[in-house]
């Protein structure tokens, strides 16, 4: 039976095309992931060499840069592990009861404190979040923090001027979180591909963030979507999860 199945596949142009398309995607991903690994390694390598020069007065700055690039590598390896967990359907959630507004405030403050992070140019883009009371949810706190960080980071990356706003609201037994920006918006032809694996518009990214975020929200029994703002300026990403 197995031999016949393979033979049928071999002469099915549709399946062969799909396999070629998948192979190309994997090849492209390997190239991008390799690029994303080598860039911070290059920075770590050069800064480490510079540290060997005892007379250099910029040592604290070099150590900070090494730490920054090491964390970048750690994030990449975490993302790759998450992809494996999602694809193997073994992503477990550690649910606890917590205030979602407090978590969002913490993430926002964390982003604001990264004033040295040149990638986002945070100083130029304001982050607006005005929580109203508390919204308690029963969810995986670390995973939701990952989702909010991903969406906020993306919004800041693609916004040249203006602001990024976050709104969390309770609606019956669900909580809805919307992150809106005043960036360039999303081209209609790519909206349906945004949450697919390896899709990226950025020159510094593997295209895993949104795929992982949507999978985390899916694991909570919720959903995630993206749309351009009615005002014609920027885009909004929304996720909705059950409170319990």
């Amino acid at each position: 039976m197995e031999v016949r199945y393979e033979t049928e596949n071999m002469f099915n142009p549709g399946l062969i095309n799909k396999q070629v398309e998948l192979d190309n995607k994997i090849q492209e991903f390997i190239n991008i992931a390799s690029h994303e690994m080598k860039t911070p390694i290059q920075a770590i390598l050069t800064y480490s060499e510079l540290l060997q020069n005892n007379s250099d007065k910029s040592k604290p700055a070099y150590i900070k840069a090494i730490l920054r690039n090491s964390l970048r590598l750690q994030k990449l390896s975490d993302n790759l592990l998450d992809i494996t967990r999602i694809d193997s359907q073994i992503m477990g959630l550690k649910k606890e009861r917590f205030d979602l507004n407090a978590l969002i405030s913490w993430v926002v403050e964390d982003f604001r404190s990264q004033t040295e992070n040149l990638e986002y140019e945070i100083g130029k883009i304001g982050i607006e979040f005005k929580p109203v009371g508390q919204i308690f949810v029963n969810a995986d706190k670390c995973r939701l923090e990952q989702v909010i960080s991903n969406l906020l980071g993306n919004a800041l990356k693609f916004t040249q001027e203006g602001k990024v706003s976050i709104l969390a609201e309770k609606k019956e037994d669900n909580v809805i979180v919307t992150i809106s920006d005043t960036g360039r918006g999303i081209k209609p032809e790519i909206i349906h591909r945004l949450f697919t694996k390896f899709f990226t518009l950025s020159n510094s990214g593997t295209g895993l963030g949104l795929y992982i975020s949507k999978s985390i929200i899916g694991a909570h029994g919720g959903n995630m979507s993206a749309r351009n703002n009615v005002s014609g300026l920027g885009a909004s990403f929304t996720f909705e999860i059950p409170i319990h």
Partner: peptide, 17 residues
């Protein structure tokens, strides 16, 4: 290079050479 850490470290490294 679009990565500030790359340009900054290379500038220092190459200047030392």
């Amino acid at each position: 290079d679009d990565e500030p850490d790359i340009t900054s470290s290379l500038k220092n490294g190459l200047q030392q050479k």
